[in-house]
Computed example of a mutant assay.
Amino acid sequence: MWTCLADGRFLFEVGSRSEGTFLRFYDEIPEAEVYYTDDFKVYDWLPFNRHVKGARGKAKTNRNEGRHSILKDKLAGLRRKTKAYSRSALMLCGSIALLTVKNNWI
């Protein structure tokens, strides 16, 4: 799953951590002055001159990581080795959307 905070909105894409899933997600991310990320290889698709990565980028991702942590805590479907959820991607998207609305992350 991919998550992003942009212009006060919480965006997400359900899928693997592959380059293909990231590229689908990348099409939904609005243009930004600066993109902050860790050193994950697929982030090389972001504009080089506006991309801060590594330790400096990771330090700026706290709010997004915090929301991702809340999602993993509240939704069993994002925890590993569990039988407490539907394997349907549609159900997972719906659950994330409901939690997003509940927490006013819109």
Rank of each mutant, 00 (worst) to 15 (best):
W45P: 04
W45C: 14
W45M: 14
L46H: 02
L46F: 05
P47T: 04
P47D: 05
P47H: 06
F48G: 09
F48Y: 10
N49H: 15
N49V: 02
N49L: 14
R50A: 13
R50P: 06
R50G: 02
R50I: 03
H51I: 07
H51R: 06
H51M: 08
H51N: 06
H51Q: 10
H51L: 06
H51Y: 06
V52D: 01
V52F: 00
K53Q: 14
K53N: 08
K53F: 10
G54N: 04
G54K: 03
A55L: 13
A55I: 07
A55K: 15
A55F: 11
G57M: 04
K58R: 01
K58L: 08
A59L: 09
K60N: 11
K60Y: 04
K60H: 13
K60L: 07
T61I: 00
T61G: 01
N62A: 04
N62M: 07
N62W: 00
N62V: 12
N62T: 15
N64R: 09
N64F: 03
N64A: 15
N64S: 12
E65S: 00
G66I: 03
G66V: 03
H68W: 09
H68P: 01
S69E: 09
S69W: 05
S69G: 14
I70K: 11
I70R: 13
I70Q: 11
I70L: 14
I70C: 00
L71I: 12
K72L: 02
D73H: 06
D73S: 09
D73Y: 07
K74G: 06
K74C: 09
K74P: 02
L75R: 04
A76K: 09
A76P: 15
G77S: 08
G77I: 07
L78W: 03
L78P: 10
L78Y: 13
R79D: 10
R79N: 12
R79V: 06
R80F: 08
R80P: 09
R80A: 08
R80S: 11
K81E: 10
K81D: 14
K81C: 13
T82V: 12
T82C: 12
K83A: 09
K83N: 14
K83L: 12
K83D: 05
K83V: 04
A84L: 07
A84N: 14
Y85H: 15
Y85K: 07
Y85D: 07
S86W: 03
S86F: 02
S86C: 12
S86M: 07
R87Q: 12
R87C: 02
R87S: 10
R87V: 05
S88Q: 05
S88M: 06
A89M: 13
L90A: 08
L90M: 08
M91N: 11
M91D: 12
M91T: 08
C93D: 12
C93S: 11
C93A: 10
G94S: 03
G94V: 00
S95C: 01
S95L: 00
S95Q: 11
I96N: 01
I96E: 00
A97M: 08
A97L: 04
A97V: 00
A97S: 10
A97N: 08
L98M: 12
L98Q: 09
L99D: 07
L99K: 02
L99P: 02
T100V: 01
T100L: 02
T100R: 13
